[in-house]
């Protein structure tokens, strides 16, 4: 197990993760939720760095650091995608939060008033 110094980072990482997760659950504003995800991600990365430092000797283990680099790249992409989608959702619904059950209600290609539509088209 890591020594005391590293353990602080480890615990801080876990705490960040927990805080992020908590906000994700309780916040409704889309931007806040994206930020919460980022906080969670930072927590995970901190845990990785702390674990990388636990190897004996002066040089830390490079593998977790390589992983964190990859993770950061993924995280940036994820944030970008989430923001773009949130922007689209806001444009489409005029709201900055996800409704609870609305999405189940208005489903596929339902062209409005389909019945008039069909009756209007005479079946040759």
């Amino acid at each position: 197990m890591p020594d005391a110094d590293h353990r602080i980072y480890l615990l801080a990482g876990v705490a960040l993760f927990a805080i992020g997760f908590y906000s994700l659950l309780v916040q409704t504003h889309l931007l806040r939720r994206v930020m919460a995800l980022n906080v969670m991600g930072s927590g995970v990365f901190l845990v990785y760095i702390a674990l990388g430092a636990q190897t004996p000797g002066p040089i830390p283990d490079p593998v977790p650091q390589a992983m964190v680099l990859t993770g950061i790249v993924v995280s940036v992409c994820a944030t970008g995608l989430a923001l773009a989608l949130a922007d689209r959702v806001q444009a489409a619904t005029g709201r900055v939060e996800l409704g609870d059950h609305e999405d189940a209600a208005d489903l596929p290609d339902a062209s409005p008033a389909p019945s008039e539509h069909h009756k209007g088209t005479p079946s040759a």
């Binding site: 994700l24 889309l30 939720r33 995800l37 994820a78 995608l81 989430a82 989608l85 949130a86 689209r88 959702v89 489409a92 619904t93 996800l98 409704g99 609305e102 999405d103 209600a105 208005d106 489903l107 596929p108």
Partner: peptide, 15 residues
Amino acid sequence: AGKRAALTAALRYLF
């Protein structure tokens, strides 16, 4: 799909 329901579902899925 571009519709409101699809966008909302997509964002929820992403989260």
